[in-house]
């Protein structure tokens, strides 16, 4: 029972992290039809900035997190203007290559500035304590991750379903040409959602630093992980990404608890099964 509970807590919080990092990727992939292998770089930039702010600039954790997220969003804005505008028109293969190139540059930059060691982010002491839930206790950090994940889900839902921006974004995902014809500024929508996705990735990267340690090779090491979530969930489907992230998080954690010698094999087997049966992912339409 305690194993089951442990798997559930760790799996769900791992899934929340995966969701936060990947949801931006699913939006950009669904919206721009771009295979963006550089998405993990935004989690790295966020995590590295947070590390730099907390351990070298003496900024407190609660201030450092929003600052790092904002910084990442600005970097993403610039990258979008400089590189991605052109990448949208590339063929699939060129997209893969161009975004791998961007990933390499990001890794090299972080490596040059902060070195290749793990970049720990000092978390407030409250996070390291345990909290009692009456019948079981769990680390506060896991609870924070799960709660923040849910907050992100709800906020995204409200943003997409209840705001003008959300309506325009959904229209652009469904049919870009039609949205253009109706006077929606899809270029602006692209840029905004790209940077929003990057910000979420940064947030997930910082919160998930306990599970996925931040270091220069982060984008390459976990690239496949984030892409798998998107592919299994279905490109452009936020609900699909959520299902896929939580499901894969639980499966991977369970496999690590029960059959640690087989590593991530179950993760990939499940993914292959899903994609063999549903090539467009769980909830994908395109």
């Amino acid at each position: 029972m305690s194993v089951f509970f442990g798997i559930l807590v760790d799996g769900v919080s791992y899934g929340m992290i995966l969701f936060m990092i990947s949801v931006g990727l699913t939006i950009t992939m669904g919206l721009m039809r771009v295979i963006n292998l550089a998405h993990g770089s935004f989690a790295l930039i966020g995590g590295a900035t947070a590390h730099w702010l907390t351990s070298e600039m003496g900024v407190g954790y609660y201030a450092a997190v929003p600052l790092a997220v904002l910084a990442t969003m600005m970097v993403a804005m610039v990258l979008e203007k400089v590189f991605y505008r052109k990448i949208y028109q590339f063929t699939e293969l060129q997209q893969v290559l161009a975004t791998i190139g961007i990933t390499f540059l990001c890794i090299a930059t972080v490596n040059y500035l902060l070195g290749s060691t793990i970049l720990p982010i000092k978390i407030p002491e409250v996070f390291t304590e345990s909290i009692s839930l009456g019948f079981r206790s769990m680390p506060v950090h896991r609870l924070v991750v799960i709660v923040m994940g849910l907050v992100v889900v709800v906020a995204l839902f409200l943003l997409l379903e209840r705001t003008n921006f959300g309506i325009q974004l959904r229209a652009a995902v469904d049919n870009r040409t039609m949205a253009d014809a109706l006077g929606i500024d899809t270029v602006r929508i692209f840029a905004l959602s790209f940077s929003l996705g990057a910000g979420l990735a940064a947030f997930g990267g910082i919160l998930g630093a306990e599970l996925l340690p931040v270091e220069a090779y982060y984008p390459l090491r976990y690239m496949v992980l984030f892409l798998v979530v998107v592919a299994v969930g279905g490109m452009g489907s936020i609900a699909g990404s959520f299902l896929a992230a939580i499901g894969l998080g639980i499966i991977d954690t369970a496999a690590r608890y029960i059959v640690p010698e087989y590593g991530t094999i179950f993760f990939f087997v499940v993914m292959m099964l899903v994609l063999a049966l549903r090539p467009r992912g769980l909830l994908g339409r395109i």
Binding site: A98, G101, I102, F104, L105, N111
Partner: peptide, 9 residues
């Protein structure tokens, strides 16, 4: 990786 990244781009 700088060199390779720039080469690729």
């Amino acid at each position: 990786l700088f060199v390779i990244g720039i080469l690729v781009l």
